[in-house]
Design a protein around this nucleic acid. Sequence first.
DNA 1: CAAAAACATTGACAAATGATAAATAAAATC
DNA 2: GATTTTATTTATCATTTGTCAATGTTTTTG
Lengths: 189, 189
Amino acid sequence: MTESLEHFFTNKFTCTTDEISEVVKHFKYVEASKGEVLIEDGNVCRYLYFVIKGCLKANFIDANGQETIRYVAFENQLISSIHSFINQTSSNEYITVVEPSKLLAISYTDFKLELSKSSLFKDFYIKMLEITYLNNHWRIETFLRLDAKQRYDYLLKNDKRLVQRLSNKNLSHFLGITQESLSRIKAKK
Amino acid sequence: MTESLEHFFTNKFTCTTDEISEVVKHFKYVEASKGEVLIEDGNVCRYLYFVIKGCLKANFIDANGQETIRYVAFENQLISSIHSFINQTSSNEYITVVEPSKLLAISYTDFKLELSKSSLFKDFYIKMLEITYLNNHWRIETFLRLDAKQRYDYLLKNDKRLVQRLSNKNLSHFLGITQESLSRIKAKK
DNA sequence: CAAAAACATTGACAAATGATAAATAAAATC
DNA sequence: GATTTTATTTATCATTTGTCAATGTTTTTG
């Protein structure tokens, strides 16, 4: 069950298989069905998830019930309500299951323990934050530079999975526009 | 000259003054005048800057000469073209001086050396990435949830310095709108 | 499989934002 | 301090995007 996470580690670090299994053993296998809410707005996020198979989203829902999507994780990606997880404070976003998923989850307690014990784990955390940074960077850049149609085209070119595997509704909430606008953008092509 | 960086460390970590000076000694004092370009689009970013006094921006300029601003650093904040600095690859953004500034700069060479030697420095880097994460997070959130006027009001409420110390032009480029739109938003108040 | 619910598309209209241009105002430069 | 450049505001008009409503299409569920 943990092969893909082990693979994730071997890809990103120079370390022995013993070191990897030392870290990976703290992750527990979980299955989650579509629509399941893993972390609720207002609660403290106690887990960091690695996606073996499936798809999760980090999303907000505002006072009018309007949804927006900050981040989407597919296979071999990590997801958490990072702010809440890091500081063990109340989360302002949800983590929701988009496709039936197989996951590996590590609790904050284990995470923190490993972080203080293992130098490799510290490197893992740094790598995770760096990957997250790159992701956030292009997100901000596309919002600053591009209008809705251009953002859609950007995804088509650079992250096709989002267009292919998300519903129009989810994709529009990821792009920060309405379903209707996305429908029109796709029709115009 | 290094007092404020030392203070930055003492605020964020539990460490001795010896440990701090060990890290801080790698930062070199630099002065920079308004309009100066510290890192150019297309070049590799070799420095990470800490702002003692003044203001820097991380900005893009597109093919039509249109500017957008990803991030603004005031006193006691760090700034770099992080993507480029981390991987020593070509930067897709500029770092430009907004107000005459007093800075502390660390080179990538020293940064990497410290990172491999010092556990405190690793913690410093983790903290830096976490702070950066929080900043990127609210940026993405405001782009997703809010229109231009609401984003302006958000800054007024949560980060007034940006409204007070940036020119309208810079502020509009930070908000991802035109100067004219910002003028109208301010007039409507 | 049928009914219900959720999702997707389309049209009409309103509101927000961008583009362009012109007129002041402010700042930088000599 | 006068001149030049840059920034700001205001107006007009075009375009994009949002809102609301109607309809058709899928998906879910019993």
